[in-house]
Nucleic acid binder design. Structure first.
Length: 476
DNA sequence: ATGTGC
């Protein structure tokens, strides 16, 4: 995008004042290079979101923003239910409650090196990955509904996880207000065999090493040390969330028209929060969130089990599990008053600062861990939420590197085999059922994650704590 | 993202 279409507020804040149907400004947090690298559609979409009924304060885009279905990926917008506010399936995304968890081990890089190849083989063999992958768990109708209301708590009760994990998961492992009755039989049917599976696209399970400590005090509070081995899982609600997104997306244009909402783009289809379909979507979306929380808990359990085959005494403690595709009712300061608003975060991570009451005691002083997935070769970051993020973007930050090239362009430029060989030469073992998927996810197809997190830090969204480098990547 | 799509 041409930076000149914005008013530059400071080095990392760019603003478009309301014009036409916009009810609030659009604000993008990024440095000038990142702005230049963004598609024009990011600005257009952020402005489109600013026209939606009940939006408060501003429509925001994070430093990793790129264009998505209706709302930008990397978009944050909050709506007031008492001011005609809306909920939008396109504002959450197809992969409902897609997110990241990082688990800390007491192993060092030197412990992994002798077993790296065998460990990669074991993880690849035992963790189902790829399009349509099936797991070892099958749910009947009763267990399906229990999973959809119980989330990670349900997983723990069934032996796939540990109860001490729960306080390290957003919402304590189970999102309240889930309504399995608002989830279609088709969506449930697609999920029957998919619990404990990774899926495809940019989803992965990685064994990583702490490559750099940026903030010593926060790293200590999080339990991170140089050369420590951690396991990070990125995945979501699989077929169930996708089916729910598809079905409600189809129903929302009618609901928007019935509510007299004029849309600048059909893809922004939405419904009033205080409407039947709005409430049904929220109930189904929360059920899908619980599916994603349960899925990540099960995958974490598998990772623990496999690590213990190699290191019987290994400790594997959950640092945090956080989603980056959600709509949540939260209390934020709006026009100087605390108000409950529905915050859509689509490709944006919740980033609550120090002292936030929702954080567990052990993390309250340091702030929420903000888990940023990079690309296969470049590594990832752990950030900490900042109090300033509350007034900048309703307590949100970026979620990843963001694509620089389309999947199609990546396929033209790289082969899966070539990427696997290139990364192996750098000590990174990649295992995937799909060579095409690996080519699509080539490190060069992504922006520089370091530039993205630096911009997030400069903008006051979150601060860098540690950088991680991959050792083993199981790719969907 | 997705029992991937013309």
């Amino acid at each position: 995008m041409d930076p000149r279409r914005f008013t530059q507020i400071d080095a990392t804040t760019w603003r478009i004042e309301p014009t036409g149907a916009m009810r609030v400004p659009a604000v993008i947090y990024a440095d000038e290079d990142l702005i230049r690298g963004m598609d024009d559609k990011v600005g257009v979409q952020a402005c489109n979101v600013a026209t939606l009924p009940g939006i408060v304060t501003a429509s925001y885009a994070m430093p990793d923003a790129h264009w998505g279905y209706g709302f930008p990926i990397g978009g944050v917008a909050a709506f007031d239910p008492d001011g005609g506010g809306i909920v939008s399936a396109g504002g959450v995304g197809f992969d409902i409650s897609c997110g990241v968890r990082t688990m800390l081990t007491d192993l060092a890089v030197a412990d992994i090196e002798p077993v790296q190849s065998r460990l990669a083989d074991a993880l690849f063999r035992e963790i189902p990955a790829g399009v349509g992958s099936r797991g070892a768990i099958t749910l009947d109708t009763v267990e399906m509904d229990r999973m959809l209301t119980g989330g990670a708590r349900w997983a723990v009760e069934n032996g796939w996880g540990e109860s001490r994990d729960l306080e390290r998961i957003e919402e304590g492992g189970a999102v309240p207000g889930a309504r399995p009755d608002c989830v279609s039989e088709r969506a449930k049917g697609r999920q029957r065999h998919e619990m404990g599976t990774l899926g495809s696209g940019n989803h992965y399970l990685e064994v990583q090493a702490v490559a750099e400590i940026v903030d010593r005090d926060a790293a200590r509070a999080f339990g991170l040390a140089q050369d420590q081995v951690v396991v990070t899982i990125h995945c979501g609600s699989r077929g169930l969330g996708h089916q729910i997104g598809t079905e409600y997306l189809a129903g929302m244009p009618v609901a928007a028209a019935a509510a007299g909402i004029a849309l600048p783009d059909r893809e922004l289809a939405c419904a009033p929060i205080n409407s039947d379909i709005g409430q049904r979507y929220l109930g189904a979306m929360r059920a899908a969130s619980n599916c994603a929380l349960a899925n990540r808990e099960i995958l974490g359990h598998y990772a623990r089990r496999i690590l213990r085959d190699f290191f019987p005494e290994v400790a594997v403690d959950l640092l945090f599990d956080v989603s980056h595709n959600t709509c949540k009712a939260e209390t934020h300061t709006v026009d100087g008053e605390p108000r409950e608003v529905y915050v859509h975060r689509k490709g944006a991570t919740r980033a609550f600062g120090p002292g936030h009451p929702s954080l567990p005691d052990a993390l309250r002083a340091a702030g929420q861990p903000v888990l940023i997935g990079g690309s296969m070769g470049t590594g990832s970051y752990i950030l900490a939420g900042l109090a300033s993020s509350e007034e900048k973007a309703f307590g949100s930050a970026c979620h990843g590197a963001g694509r620089a090239l389309s999947r199609h362009a990546a396929l033209r430029q790289w082969s899966g085999r070539g990427i696997v060989d290139e990364l192996a030469a750098r000590g990174i073992l990649v295992c995937s059922p799909s060579a095409r998927g690996v080519a699509e996810e080539a490190p060069g197809a992504y922006k520089d994650v370091g530039a993205v997190v630096l911009a997030a830090e400069r903008a006051g969204l979150a601060r860098r704590v540690a950088r991680l480098r991959p050792l083993i990547c199981i790719k969907g």
